[in-house]
Design a protein around this nucleic acid. Sequence first.
DNA 1: ATTTGTTTGACTATTTTTGACTAATAATAA
DNA 2: TTATTATTAGTCAAAAATAGTCAAACAAAT
Lengths: 156, 156
Amino acid sequence: MTDIIEAYLKKVLKQQEQVEIRRSEIAELFDCVPSQINYVINTRFTIQKGYLVESKRGGGGYIRIIKVQVLDESDMLNTMIEIIGNNISERDAKSVVQKLYDDKIISKREAKLMIVAMDKSLYTGDRVTDNRVRANLLRSMLANLRYEEPNKRKAD
Amino acid sequence: MTDIIEAYLKKVLKQQEQVEIRRSEIAELFDCVPSQINYVINTRFTIQKGYLVESKRGGGGYIRIIKVQVLDESDMLNTMIEIIGNNISERDAKSVVQKLYDDKIISKREAKLMIVAMDKSLYTGDRVTDNRVRANLLRSMLANLRYEEPNKRKAD
DNA sequence: ATTTGTTTGACTATTTTTGACTAATAATAA
DNA sequence: TTATTATTAGTCAAAAATAGTCAAACAAAT
């Protein structure tokens, strides 16, 4: 169900840079409880994946999903480094890497290298420590890409 | 039983490069316990045999088996993985990466990514822990370079 | 007899679904 | 204007729906 709603919203977002919905309407359309929509948004339209969400309650309320657009590569990397901050979960970290790949800032091989390095099983086992170390690693890797000479190996 | 399930999955994989199953369904189909499926996968669809396995739990969960191509440099990478073992210093780790670059197994960008990830300053500060985590990271990254996924068409 | 491989099931981990309760805003009444 | 009510959306935790782990029991091979 989550996947279906996600696909529906992404399809709309392919043609428009933002989409505005009424939560109860979408819930009715897909025959699910309204809070399911929140779940979809919280797990699939995060800032790490490149989306911003605004909403308003009360009469005429809405939920608006906006595709964030960044100007260039260096801008994108800086933005991502900020988003990462001092801690990041495995899931969010993988979303960040996936986003960089989708936007052709890194190659598939680079993406895979980075994604395996985000895996929880490699760290200490203490969640707080791990999230901090993971953020350190990811920020360093992204910062490194920023100062790189023009990409010779074309992103596939 | 293991052989039968293995044969079934391999037959499907002969026609498709990947197969996605629901664990409980396959268990029911062959009238065995669900964890039998894990046994089959763990013993017959390992990365050494050229298979990659992904899965998701929860509603709409699945197990996906993907046939991958093992690359020529696989043997060398395996040797290096063994040498790394459970602990490695920053200096030795960087030498390993440098060797991969010299041998043209990784690109310059990949090398730089990996080298920054080996840096002591990113870890916990406890030398023993750090050497272990670093070894985990490096081994995982090398393991990932051993194979290549087939090009899969993206459904839109 | 010993070792190696397989089957089973209890327990754990993860992700999604659901619904009761809460919060915010708009519309309306006083 | 202010208070009240209606109309949204948000939060959170429990329940449900998956898959994973591990070790004991069992079977097969040496």
